[in-house]
């Protein structure tokens, strides 16, 4: 399959940006939380689920999407949001609880909504699939070629919403793609202890739809598979499931003691980091220079820095604004 070099460069920049963003978020989140960890303290309070290591799923899919396509994401949503082009300043401000945030500080890190690029996410496992189903239904009713992508974790494939939505999407041949990021753990429970099949792509057979499997967090493979699934959806060939074997380098949430896995596991995973692999591929197979890579990295870092500065400099909402926006 022909791979566009521009696409790969975009993917690299996006994955790098996600990594920078999450690294910086881990630091910001830690502020005010030592020596005693208090989940409600510091400039970024509450639960924090970071996607470090899971960049290929978001970048490999979203490179094929346009503004009019819909993306729904779960409780670990930053990589999808960044890849879908959510306003980084307002997203970061939202996570810092500021009035300039996407939801004026009412949503927080698990509840980011940017209708300008048709992105949403939520904190209930599997619940975003029906929303993507509805977007796919709307796209079909309006005769557009828009598609809807629901990103979920492998734990969500065991939710009723997964089954109900895929049955309906298949029944009505809707342009829905469900991307399952199998990061190996549902909080602490390994997939082998939660799921009866070795990989969820085989569940596609239950709906008579296409199932794809991407091994070992491979960005290029994710790119190829997503391209096919998106093309199928755009041309009326119905829904697909993609499962990607991916890795979460950090805990389920920041502060997770991670008693359920070997301390060396992440060290080994980082040795085959997908960003480094894509970088090498660009340098060795695509004739991209170190300078170009450095430019992309600088641009990404700059955007991230700017977003954090914007968030920190923004004001908190007035307390009584809590009473607004219940009804429009």
């Amino acid at each position: 399959m022909a791979i566009s070099k521009d696409h790969l460069l975009w993917m690299y920049e996006t994955m790098y940006k996600i990594r920078c963003y999450e690294d910086k978020m881990a630091e910001a989140y830690a502020e005010g939380k030592s020596p005693v960890f208090n989940i409600g303290a510091g400039p970024v309070p509450g639960e924090m689920h970071l996607a470090t290591g899971q960049e290929p799923a978001a970048a490999g899919m979203c490179v094929h999407l346009k503004k009019e396509d819909t993306v729904t994401a779960p409780h670990r949503p930053h990589h999808h949001a960044i890849a879908k082009g959510v306003d980084l300043n307002r997203m970061t401000a939202e996570i810092f609880g500021k009035a300039t945030g996407l939801g004026k500080g009412k949503g927080g890190h698990m509840h980011l909504f940017d209708p300008d690029v048709k992105f949403s996410c939520g904190g209930i496992v599997g619940a975003g699939i029906p929303h993507a189903l509805g977007a796919a239904l709307a796209a079909k009713k309006r005769g557009t070629d828009w598609v809807a992508v629901a990103f979920i974790g492998e734990g969500a494939a065991n939710q009723g919403a997964f089954h109900e939505s895929l049955n309906m999407a298949a029944l009505w041949k809707l342009p829905l793609i469900v991307v399952i990021e199998n990061n190996q753990y549902g909080i602490s429970v390994p997939k082998t202890a939660s799921t009866a099949v070795p990989s969820n792509d085989v569940r596609a057979a239950a709906y008579g739809i296409k199932g794809y499997y991407v091994k070992d967090n491979d960005p290029i493979d994710m790119y190829n598979v997503s391209k096919e699934a998106v093309e199928r959806a755009r041309t009326g060939q119905g829904p697909s499931i993609i499962e990607i074997e991916t890795y979460r380098y950090l805990g389920h949430f920041q502060g997770d003691p991670e008693v359920y896995r070997d301390k060396n596991e992440v060290t080994l995973l980082r040795q085959k980091d997908p960003i480094i692999r894509l970088r090498n591929y660009l340098l060795n197979e695509c004739g991209v220079t170190e300078e170009t890579i450095a430019q992309l990295e600088n641009k990404a870092t700059f955007e991230v820095d700017q977003a954090y500065a914007f968030a920190r400099e923004s004001d908190y909402p007035k307390p009584e604004e809590a009473l607004e926006d219940v009804f429009v």
Binding site: P130, L133, A135, L137, A161, S165, N167
Partner: peptide
């Protein structure tokens, strides 16, 4: 097309209504 019988899947079709409403339907 406009009066749609659904499967017995309340989570999916109520959720789909949310998704469609967010799109302006």
């Amino acid at each position: 097309e406009r009066v749609i019988d659904t499967p017995i899947s309340e989570t999916a079709f109520i959720g789909a209504a949310i998704g469609a409403a967010a799109e302006g339907m």
